[in-house]
Amino acid sequence: MNAPDRFELFVLPDGVKKLTITPDTKIPNAATFKIEKEDHTLANMLRMQLLEDPKVLFAGYKMPHPLDHYFILKVQTTPDTTPAHALGNAITELIQTVGAMKNKFEMDLIRARAFEEAKSNPVGDADDLSSHNVDMDF
């Protein structure tokens, strides 16, 4: 039938660029980024991170149509930097944030696993401990 392929949502077709930069013709230091095959997950993260940058005067995104799987991100910066540079910084910052989050998660996971382990085999009883010692090699 005429239903679009479901993989169109996330597979970049041949010859299509993941990212295109269009400088704004009317506003200085402004550009529009078109990012293909991505959604709010990435767009909102980038927008919020860009807004944290004091050199970014404007950052906003939209998904122009629910059947088109791309978003556009408009960025305007102060004259001492460029929108592409600001976006680069935002991405670097986010990679660091997610990396740190992952490290923290892995660290707490070790603690949580040890805790769950201790809960499932309690070694509180003295009997238990002594019976363990019998087979132990010193």
Partner: peptide, 30 residues
């Protein structure tokens, strides 16, 4: 469940990392 979270975080990193490369390509190309 912990693997779901860790894999999700890796996917987020890959997503951002991929975009960083494309942005660099685009900027140097320009």
């Amino acid at each position: 469940p912990e693997d779901v979270v860790l894999r999700a975080m890796t996917i987020m990193q890959d997503k951002l990392g991929g975009l960083q490369i494309k942005l660099d390509d685009e900027v140097t190309g320009e």
